[in-house]
Design a protein around this nucleic acid. Sequence first.
DNA 1: GTTGAATGCGAGCAATGACTCGCGTCACGA
DNA 2: TCGTGACGCGAGTCATTGCTCGCATTCAAC
Lengths: 197, 197
Amino acid sequence: MRKAPQQARSREMVERLVTAGRRVLVERGYDAFSTNRVATVAGVSPGSLYQYFPDKAAILEVVIDRYWEEVADRVAASLADRIGEFGPGMVRATTDALLTALEADRELLRVVAEELPVQRNRERRAALERRVRELMTTYLAARPDSSHRPNPAVASWVVVLAIENLAMRWVLDQPEVVTRDQLLDEVLALVGGYLLA
Amino acid sequence: MRKAPQQARSREMVERLVTAGRRVLVERGYDAFSTNRVATVAGVSPGSLYQYFPDKAAILEVVIDRYWEEVADRVAASLADRIGEFGPGMVRATTDALLTALEADRELLRVVAEELPVQRNRERRAALERRVRELMTTYLAARPDSSHRPNPAVASWVVVLAIENLAMRWVLDQPEVVTRDQLLDEVLALVGGYLLA
DNA sequence: GTTGAATGCGAGCAATGACTCGCGTCACGA
DNA sequence: TCGTGACGCGAGTCATTGCTCGCATTCAAC
């Protein structure tokens, strides 16, 4: 941010800009995401945009950050609800929460995950992954039979990446062969069999 | 292709252009991939480029297609070597082949997988996935105990997507916690436990 | 050697888009 | 009421880039 909006009027404008950015991204795609267009859609002049955002990437970043924060919050909320209650139920609930979060705005997910250069998401997605991974690692390490083969750190890395991709592709591709419930069952079978190996 | 190069001279030029495209992509990134720059690096004029490629996307497509074809060929070769010999050994060998293929040009993989809009890869990657998935489905369906829970079609979908992401992220992120051999072991444990559940 | 097609060149067009700047307007404290 | 700084505007600048076109050069068949 180039400078912080002070009056209510300008704060509202920044809001309108971010919302417009999201809209442009969803409705017109990443290629059409130009500062001029975002400003126009927001009903604001290009010059005003640059009073609060240093460059084009800055608005995009805010839009993306907000999206992943939304997703992360939903997953975190589900995780927080079941603190202590680890085990299969938790895996299922977390995956379910992730699915729900991704389904909430499939259009934006499509743009963010498939049209945008992944690099732009890196940071945020990595943060989400790390969060879940660390939680899982500590749980695994605290298990009674923790000396077992799947090293906790490695196991969480594997499980988180596997589930992440399955959830994302399922939401984006909507494969006919597998229903939502089925997906949850399969995920459970996959990680269940693995962690107890 | 706008028209097919007939003389050796022009065929060579097309080659130089594609190679230059790959170089620009790797060394300067996707943002710098402009027709003029590709032509310059190839030591060719922009006009000549447009004699054989209808537009910018066309060269990019050739570069990307060649890359994924390379990967697919390596995986397919490994698969062909072990036809009939299904089971854990095959999973390990295939994953190994995929890893090797992805490691062969990590720089290009980074650009192709992280800088490029995923959409551009869709087709080719989907083709590779489908190929492996179908092979696996037929194997699973032919198993003696094929009436078991993991439905063949679903199971291959799950396994292929999980392995794909693990392999790709491992090559790109090179996580310290997990070595190459370890990765192979984990993948085996993951799908082994799942398929026999 | 001549000729016509294939090839290659590169200046330049047209469009786009990120970003600026000078000017007018508005809100708020004095 | 008035002055000052925050706010907002939008025409315009500058650089880039995808792509074309008219001309020069080379190749191969006769």
